[in-house]
Simulated assay, not measured.
Amino acid sequence: MATAASTSRVRSTSSATDCRTGGETVVRLYVHGEFASVVRPVRQLIAFRCVDLAAGEAESLVLEAPVERLYYALADGGRGIEPGEVTGRAGLASDALSCVVATSVDEAANRV
């Protein structure tokens, strides 16, 4: 997951190899802050994209989301994300996330 110009990007390859007929499907991007001082969801949906794949077809795509989608209410009442590791997971369902990437959030880009 890259964080440049306040955008998170994850490249994922989706395929319809499990489908006999193909069709439209949704690729989802979830994130999780590994060491937050407040309770956070295990999977927070921050981006998704519909793709139309024929049976057996695969497509490489990039999911993007503004970094502000990672923000939450901090213990001091402000909004932001604490410095530390953030893990992004992409896939066709919340229980089938085959693409996993990690990045670090630094102190400079973590508050509104």
Rank of each mutant, 00 (worst) to 15 (best):
T25K: 14
A90I: 02
A90S: 11
T87G: 06
V101D: 01
Q44L: 12
T13Q: 11
T17P: 02
R111V: 05
A58N: 12
A93F: 10
E107Q: 07
A96V: 03
S98N: 10
T21Y: 14
V67G: 02
G88D: 00
A65L: 03
R89K: 06
S104G: 11
I81L: 15
T103K: 09
E57W: 08
A96Y: 10
S37N: 10
G33P: 13
R20D: 06
E57G: 10
V86L: 09
A47R: 04
A16V: 04
G88L: 04
I81C: 10
G77F: 02
D106N: 14
V67Y: 02
A54Q: 14
R11D: 02
F48A: 13
S12W: 13
S6V: 01
V86W: 14
S8I: 10
A73V: 11
T25G: 14
T17M: 08
V112W: 03
T7P: 00
Q44R: 13
G91D: 00
A47M: 02
A36K: 12
T3H: 06
R89V: 01
R69T: 00
G80M: 04
S104R: 15
S6C: 04
S6G: 13
R111M: 02
G22K: 11
S15D: 15
T13S: 13
S6P: 00
T13K: 12
T3M: 06
G56A: 09
V42F: 11
V31Y: 09
V101M: 01
A73N: 04
T3G: 06
L45G: 14
A93C: 02
T3Q: 07
L61P: 03
C19G: 15
T21F: 14
E64C: 09
S98M: 03
C99Y: 05
T17N: 13
A75S: 11
H32E: 09
A16L: 08
D95V: 03
N110I: 00
S60P: 11
T21Q: 12
V100R: 15
E107Y: 05
E64F: 09
V51A: 03
R11L: 04
Y30K: 08
T7F: 05
E68C: 12
D52C: 12
A55K: 07
V10T: 04
L74W: 01
A4G: 12
G56E: 03
V42D: 03
L97N: 05
D52T: 13
G91A: 07
L92R: 12
L74H: 06
V10F: 05
G23A: 13
E24C: 06
S60G: 15
L63F: 09
E24G: 11
C99K: 05
A55R: 06
A4W: 02
V31C: 14
A102E: 03
H32K: 15
A55P: 08
V27M: 11
T3N: 13
P66G: 12
A108Q: 10
S37C: 01
V51R: 08
V86E: 00
